[in-house]
Design a protein around this nucleic acid. Structure first.
Length: 593
RNA sequence: GCACCCGUAGCUCAGUUGGAUAGAGCGCUGCCCUCCGAAGGCAGAGGCCGCAGGUUCGAAUCCUGCCGGGUGCGCCA
């Protein structure tokens, strides 16, 4: 909680935690008690707003250490807090909670802060420029992206943005798995399509080839570019050419898909570049041998279904079990080539050498078996110097009209990422994918996601933003003294505000920095989405009070000073919503259509 | 068999890292437009937090053991 820098703390909860600590340090304590350990002291919004604005557990946490009863200690701390000029009232409740009600001056200060900082309000320096690598998507370059990739893509992208917002130095990375045997299959499949393009009847695409229609244009392009001579080329040479050519084409498709989803990467890392004589994998293995992390041995057979063709075989193994993995892992296949795991190891080493201190992987749930081995690799190579963090995204179940539908894999016709984006729009896809903890399954109902009503959280939040700007536009039109600029709103007299609904809105905004800290520390972008829903709710709710009590409406030409302060409030809300949506990669519209 | 994830309202899910009387949305029962966007708001009913122990001032949250669901499990990538 102590990652704010600068003189003015934007996170009022961290700010008050410091004030509480200071009061505790100044307490007149018995001589025989040790210096209090304040680490578990927290200041949070109370569960029930009726209790106050802030609550601290300090008395309960410290009672034992200080050899006092929680309630007695709470009273002493409360007394100290009452001396604070920004505190209106302090009371002790329940087992020893200290509830603080703050002076409206504090809320005015918070609002001024939001208006002044706009969309940078809430960002922080917790990350302190730490180099973080976030790897996500990394779909095999064998075809366009399908729905299954969507969640991880959005999650990784939002997580990266969130970490940037929290002051980390983030690199967004994609590894292109262009070295495995699936690339041979891809190249051969493209060659079939090439022959087809030259007029040959290739019949039905045989088993073991990719049947997808997306390879047809690749075949045509090959035919146009290389013509007949490609057929007669030396097979080895031709395969090499086809592999490079086709992978490039597939990556073009994937990049298009990513851009349709508004997902960005800084680095596309080619696995292939690590293979070959004297390359990264060789070097890595040499290095690991020197450090005795690699040995020759045999693995026990798997505990579940033992394959029919199982045979004990001596292999080159990595001592991953010494670093938290369930078993050691093979680095070299029986034919002498490297396993994918070997590439993983070399790739991790590469990241570590590039200076990343936190290496994050966003993977699908079907990769759960990889978590321990990735952590083990990172541990072993860096000597514990680097954190490897794996976030798994659970399955997405697709629904339409209330019934689930699954994609048929056999036909080669799967639901693509593009299908989903085209049907419901990027914003809805992204928000809904993020409006859930990543390790919980997600139901994605096309009909609900497209709905333009309060029942749809995407719409609800975006509408909140649009509504703010609707008010500001309206005000600029009605009031001759208002031209709707951030500068003039900064000069508003915030002391004009006096309604509890207005302060409730400010209090909600005051939580934003704290939400960002919690979400980034825990790598949980969904917290942002939920917060935005709550903020939008507070806005809509306050708005509606203006229906029963016209004096609460934002615009009133009889009271320009108050109106200006209220417009500043509306503007502030729009800024917080916009910055949150921006972290999620969702647009903040000025009007709904 | 082992590992990881999940069991919270009829349904889909949050739950401030151990805090107060467990919260939203949908669905259900009602209410609110002469008025800044009703594309919205308000209220009500609805819970053995999977089960059983344990840790302590205090557990949906941490530990142990069960039960149920999902995912994965030598050289595929």
């Amino acid at each position: 909680m102590s990652c704010q820098t600068g003189l003015l703390k934007m996170n009022i909860f961290a700010d008050f935690a410091e004030r509480v600590n200071s009061v505790v340090r100044d307490l007149d304590l018995a001589a025989d008690v040790p210096e209090p350990d304040l680490r578990r002291v927290t200041v949070e919004p109370p569960r029930d707003a009726a209790h106050g604005d802030l609550a601290t557990n300090a008395a309960m946490v410290l009672a034992k250490q200080l050899k006092m009863k929680p309630r007695d200690l709470a009273e002493k701390i409360a007394e100290g807090l009452r001396a604070d000029s920004e505190v209106d009232a302090v009371d002790v409740a329940g087992p020893g909670f200290i509830n603080i009600r703050v002076n409206k001056v504090l809320w005015e200060r918070v609002l001024a802060e939001v208006v002044a900082r706009g969309q940078t309000f809430g960002s922080n320096t917790c990350g302190a420029g730490l180099k973080v690598n976030v790897e996500y998507v990394s779909a095999n370059p064998t075809g366009p992206m399908h729905v299954g990739h969507t969640r991880g893509a959005v999650m990784g992208d939002a997580l990266a943005s969130l970490l940037e917002f929290a002051g980390y130095d983030v690199t967004r990375e994609y590894i292109i798995n262009d070295a495995g045997s699936q690339i041979d299959t891809l190249a051969n499949s493209a060659f079939l399509r090439y022959r087809e393009a030259l007029g040959e009847d290739i019949g039905k695409i045989p088993e073991g080839y990719y049947p997808g229609e997306y390879l047809i244009p690749v075949g045509k392009a090959l035919a146009e570019e290389y013509g007949e001579p490609l057929k007669d080329m030396d097979p080895g040479e031709r395969l090499a050419l086809l592999k490079g050519y086709t992978v490039d084409k597939m990556m073009d498709l994937i990049r298009d898909d990513l851009s349709a989803l508004n997902v960005k990467h800084d680095v596309f890392f080619s696995e292939k570049t690590m293979h070959g004589q004297g390359n990264a994998i060789d070097l890595t293995l040499d290095d690991l041998r020197k450090r005795d992390l690699v040995y020759n041995g045999t693995l026990p057979p798997p505990k579940g279904e033992v394959p029919d063709d199982w045979e004990d075989r001596e292999q080159t193994l990595f001592r991953s079990s010494g670093y938290g993995d369930d078993s050691d892992r093979a680095l070299v296949k029986s034919d002498g080539s490297y396993t994918y795991f070997a590439a993983d190891v070399a790739y991790m080493r590469d990241k570590i050498e590039r200076g990343f201190k936190e290496i994050i992987f966003v993977l699908g749930a079907d990769h759960s078996g990889y978590v321990k081995r990735l952590e083990a690799i990172g541990n072993a190579i860096s000597g514990g110097d680097v954190d490897v963090i794996v976030r798994l995204c659970q399955l997405v179940k697709l629904f339409k009209g209330g019934t689930e539908f699954k994609m048929s894999k056999r036909s080669g016709n799967f639901i693509t990422l593009r299908d989903v984006v085209d049907e419901v729009g990027v914003d809805a896809v992204r928000f809904i994918m993020l409006y859930r903890k990543n390790d919980a399954q997600l139901d994605f109902d096309f009909d609900k996601v497209k709905e333009q009503s309060k029942d749809n959280p995407v719409f609800y939040v975006q509408y909140g933003h649009a509504r703010c700007h609707s008010v500001l536009r309206q005000a600029a039109e009605e009031l001759d003294w208002f031209s709707n600029t951030a500068e003039e709103l900064q000069s508003a007299d915030f002391a004009q505000l006096d309604d509890e609904g207005e302060f409730a809105l400010i209090a909600k905004m005051a939580q934003w920095p704290r939400i960002v800290e919690g979400a980034s520390e825990n790598h949980e972008p969904h917290r942002i989405a939920f917060y935005l829903y709550e903020l939008a709710n507070a806005l809509h709710s306050h708005w509606s009070r203006g229906k029963e009590k016209p004096q609460l409406r934002f615009i009133n030409d009889k009271t320009p000073e108050l109106t200006k302060a209220r417009l500043a409030l509306v503007y502030a809300v729009s800024q917080v919503i916009a910055s949150g949506l921006n972290v999620l990669g969702v647009t903040a519209p000025y009007e709904m259509r």
